Simulated assay, not measured.
Amino acid sequence: MGTFVGHLVPGLALTLLGLWHTINSIKAYCLKGSTKFTVRFWYPFDGPFSRFKHLELIFILSFSLLAIFMQVLDLPFLRFPFELDGFEHASIFLHLAIFAGFTLSAELTPSSEILSVVSGILVASVFGQEVFLLHFHSADHVGLEGHYHWLLQLIVLISLLASLTVMFLPSSLSAALVLSVSVVFQGCWFMNMGFMLWCPKFIPRGCIMQAEMRSDSMHGAVTCYSHEDDFRARALANMQFSWILSAILIFTGFTSLKFAGKCTPRAQSTEYEQLEIRTSDVPITIDTFKS
């Protein structure tokens, strides 16, 4: 994954997947209401695309298997480099493939509702293994690249905590949105890393792109000339972290406002429930007239 394309393609896939879940979570909450809403770990295609109902799971499974082969076989050269970091990256996609494969199989069986609990555990395992393998990476990313990877670990940790929360609070829209937003954030941050670390035109001022260093398993895609340049580049990364999150939250808020018109106003719903309670409490008397 230490290339521009290696960051751009997975990042774009995660971004689209997260946006798909963000939109569908808000839409489902507005249509079903707070009492009937349940978080889903995948969303089918409805309407005219109903024949492609399981397209999301098929896409995740296919993309994960392709990524595993690319990491292990070093495509397009079709050779076995036996690089440890490549197997670590493949292990992350392996857990994603396990989730997609199991969930797809569960959806094709009559007892899919029972097996959905296992799907939630598998989702948590995806982010758990990602945090584990990023934190204990065999290649010790140093310098500016190490700072970008440290910020990436924060995002994945939020995804892990959100997925665990969704397992215990399956009707929580807040947990569902945090999970989907964090997935979008992961994808955007992957793409941002590809541009800032592997595209010479976007290298911060005072820094230079260098070849990957393999000595003592130290990886540093970018080297800065001085401590001040390194400090400025890290500060820029922090601001990018904040700006990207702000853009995602703006999109989430805009989507919520767009679907708000389809939601039942909470005040009206509360008044209606109170009216029903009062009506049920009023005793009904029937006078019998004797002739």
Rank of each mutant, 00 (worst) to 15 (best):
M1G: 00
T3I: 11
V5H: 04
G6M: 10
G6L: 14
H7F: 14
L8T: 01
P10R: 01
L12A: 03
G18I: 05
G18N: 00
N24Y: 06
I26Q: 03
Y29A: 04
Y29G: 03
L31F: 14
L31M: 10
G33C: 11
S34G: 08
T35M: 15
T38L: 11
F41P: 11
Y43H: 07
P44L: 12
D46V: 14
G47D: 10
G47I: 15
P48N: 06
F49E: 01
H54M: 12
L55Y: 02
L57K: 00
I58R: 07
I60D: 05
L61Y: 10
L61S: 06
F63I: 13
L65Y: 07
L66C: 10
A67Y: 01
I68F: 13
I68L: 14
M70R: 08
M70E: 13
V72W: 05
V72N: 01
L75G: 10
P76L: 15
R79G: 10
E83C: 09
F87L: 13
A90T: 01
I92A: 08
H95F: 13
A97F: 08
A100E: 01
L104M: 07
E107T: 09
T109V: 15
T109G: 14
P110H: 00
L115G: 08
S116W: 11
V117H: 08
I121A: 13
L122I: 15
L122T: 10
V123K: 00
A124S: 11
F127H: 02
F127G: 02
E130P: 14
H137Y: 09
H137P: 04
L144D: 01
G146N: 07
L152V: 06
I158D: 01
S159W: 14
F168M: 15
L169M: 13
S171T: 02
S172N: 03
L173K: 04
S174H: 09
A176P: 09
V181P: 04
V184P: 00
V184F: 09
G187S: 09
F190D: 01
F190M: 12
M191L: 14
M191V: 06
M191S: 05
M191A: 01
F195A: 08
C199F: 14
C199D: 07
F202R: 00
A211M: 12
A211L: 15
M213S: 14
M213Q: 15
S215I: 12
M218K: 05
G220A: 15
A221R: 00
V222R: 00
T223E: 11
Y225G: 06
Y225K: 03
S226C: 14
S226M: 13
D229E: 07
D229I: 14
F231I: 12
R232F: 07
R234W: 12
R234D: 08
L236F: 07
F241P: 08
F241L: 12
F241K: 00
W243P: 03
L245P: 06
I248P: 02
L249H: 02
I250L: 12
K258T: 11
K258H: 15
F259R: 01
G261V: 15
G261Y: 12
T264D: 07
P265L: 11
P265T: 02
R266Q: 05
Q268K: 01
T270H: 00
E271A: 09
Y272V: 06
E273K: 00
E276R: 02
E276I: 12
V282S: 05
V282D: 11
P283I: 08
